[in-house]
Design a protein around this nucleic acid. Structure first.
Lengths: 192, 192
DNA sequence: GGGTACATGTAATCAGTTACATGATTTA
DNA sequence: TAAATCATGTAACTGATTACATGTACCC
């Protein structure tokens, strides 16, 4: 059935998924649609959209038409091939672990190079930042949101709460290693 | 004092930080040192080390010497300039929010395109994967680990626990949106 | 009618990844 | 001593980010 499966990356599936779910739109439309859905946790700078969607069109997974009017913007829609590609992607398992890139955490790892003062300042900073994000998450409007997307937000919330708690404990403990010490004795590894 | 501050990225600070903390080593040594510290959450493919550390040497932040023996491996050590760079990096605040790239979450966001069956399968998958990682984290040896690094692991643990709980609830609920529904009543959307 | 914010796009660069290649060391 | 594994490195490519440039709408 001639699947033209040149390797697609996650970003490609974001584009395909949005178009499959919400119908044809311009590149700018894509930008907004992404920003209001997976954009919360999957960064996607708009410049990339142009390259990426052109490539998908070349692969036959999108079809591209130009507007007639003054500025001839491109409008993309998904082809049956594209739809099939998202579908099978959604159904294949996802072995790769999630990766989180946290600059604060990175700095913490090198805390021994800075004084305890600097580490404490870092903790205060990070706690504040996470509190702010948490508040922003909680403030999102509930109504016009696709349920699955809302779910992803729920996990985002939990991550933020975990981070906030972590950094707050780090603040409270004069010596930072108390965070772990306090955790260790009572911790039964119930992961089994 | 002529700080040659060509923009440094996080990866650069990883290299500088390791060398500052643990003394001179070969590129391969760096690879291992990274793997056993921040490598848990900050992926750093070894191929990048060669390019990156050469660049840092060119900037005068590292000094590079060749071994005399059969294979003339490069040994890097940090210069005073390099040490200063890490130091000031550690002391400047970190405004950028952490970003987590989670393929499972991305698929969940597009759950409406797949059947509830597929979403349920996804949830089962993800729960299993996170449980496994959680177990791996908990199994790390405690003793020879630098306390700050251990702390980062602690946050990693909490993230994994949050994710595990999330996906487990998703499994349990026949209809996936229950995860949110159950959360909602207690949560007053205080966004005004 | 000029400023400001939103919309639309290109180009250059940089970081990250994959793939490959080969040398050294251990082990069966 | 052959196979396997660990160590070391290069090259090519793809994806992500930055910077810029310009167009259009609205608002004062």
């Amino acid at each position: 059935m001639s699947a033209p499966d040149a390797r697609l990356g996650p970003s490609d599936y974001v584009i395909l998924g949005i178009l499959a779910a919400a119908g044809p739109m311009t590149t700018y439309g894509l930008k907004r649609a992404i920003a209001s859905s997976v954009g919360y946790f999957w960064p996607f700078p708009h410049a990339q959209l142009y390259a990426e969607s052109a490539r998908l069109a070349a692969l036959g997974l999108l079809s591209e038409t130009q507007e007639g009017g003054g500025r001839r913007r491109r409008v993309y829609s998904i082809t049956p091939g594209g739809r099939a590609a998202v579908g099978s992607w959604l159904e294949t398992p996802t072995p790769e672990p999630a990766q989180f890139r946290d600059l604060g955490l990175l700095k913490l790892a090198f805390g021994s190079l800075a004084g305890p003062e600097a580490v404490a300042a870092l903790a205060r900073d990070q706690a504040a930042a996470h509190a702010e994000r948490l508040a922003a998450y909680e403030a999102y409007p509930g109504y016009p949101m696709e349920p699955h997307v809302r779910l992803t937000l729920e996990l985002g919330l939990r991550y933020e709460r975990a981070a906030l708690g972590f950094w707050q404990e780090a603040i409270l403990s004069a010596d930072i290693r108390d965070v772990v010490v306090r955790e260790s004795p009572g911790r039964d590894t119930r992961a089994g």
